[in-house]
Write a protein that binds this DNA or RNA. Structure first.
Lengths: 165, 165
DNA sequence: TATTGTTATACTCTATAACTATA
DNA sequence: TATAGTTATAGAGTATAACAATA
């Protein structure tokens, strides 16, 4: 048995007053960083049995909806650079969850497909992801979750960029 | 002159239909990842002249409001582990923006202070961060920004955890 | 025994540059 | 000339384990 104790398991020292975080409380970058980290941790915990993380999961979802999609297109859909997608697909291929195939008509391109195992694994992952989303909805309320999604999309979608058209 | 062209500068290929991202569009982890990435990129661009990133900036804000705070407390305030805070403070110290001092009464602890240079730098950074937030508000509308902040806090704050008391 | 800071280390995610083979 | 995939590499950020000094 180990005397070890993870940093995160330590109790917040209660003897001190709450720390003043100043303007950070009203800044989106900070709220986003904390929410993003927390939600990712929760999802990764939900996926622990399957030993998969959020990003490869997102890739698998796209592949299931768009069989044979080229890597570059996967990247555009998910805001992942081509170059960073390579090791992601490599890992999925190595685990037998996806495979690259030649694209007829363009010998440069590689179409990516989920394997049968990949589709089966994805089904389990999606169930867990949905359950995780429901936990979040319990925090936010059903309306809150929808509002949050809409606001986040507005923040990411280039169509809402005031600098653009 | 370089023939180089960054991956991100490439135009989205318009010949193809928009990729179907399936359930991802309704999943918070995915919306958070994209919004977080985009907002961080924007803030880092706004900070480029000062060569500082969001996380050390957040540390500096906390130090300015809580001079002499112990590292562990800084970590609790920002959801950063003690162990990961060490190189962050190291870097601030190396640049002369912050310094560690002995804490009277507890020889284990180190109180962290902004230097004069740190405070001056922080003032410029805060102005840029505020300007960046205003850009985001222009996207979301003033109400939208406030709603988004509230929802994100609700997502991060343990007080809203239904599993807790 | 527990806590503060630290070192060492590993993994994930993101980023830039440049190469190859095709188009 | 441009594009699709790739390799190599570097830097953030986050995570675990274990240690020394001190409480």
């Amino acid at each position: 048995m180990s005397t070890h104790r993870r940093d995160q398991d330590r109790p917040r020292p209660a003897d001190d007053a709450v720390v003043d975080t100043g303007k950070l409380g009203a800044m989106l970058f900070h709220a986003l960083r904390r929410a993003h980290g927390g939600v990712m941790n929760g999802l990764h915990a939900a996926f622990a049995d399957e030993d998969i993380r959020a990003l490869p999961f997102a890739v698998m979802v796209v592949l299931s909806r768009n069989p044979g999609l080229r890597q570059t297109q996967v990247g555009f859909a998910l805001d992942i650079q081509r170059t960073n997608l390579v090791p992601l697909i490599d890992a999925l291929e190595k685990r037998g969850l996806a495979e690259r195939r030649a694209v007829p008509g363009d010998r440069r391109a590689r179409g990516v497909f989920l394997t049968r195992l990949g589709a089966e694994t994805l089904a389990r992952l999606e169930a867990r992801a949905v359950a995780h989303e429901e936990k979040l909805a319990a925090r936010l309320g059903a309306d809150g979750r929808g509002q949050l999604l809409a606001l986040l999309h507005r923040l990411s979608d280039p169509a809402f960029d005031p600098d653009a058209g």
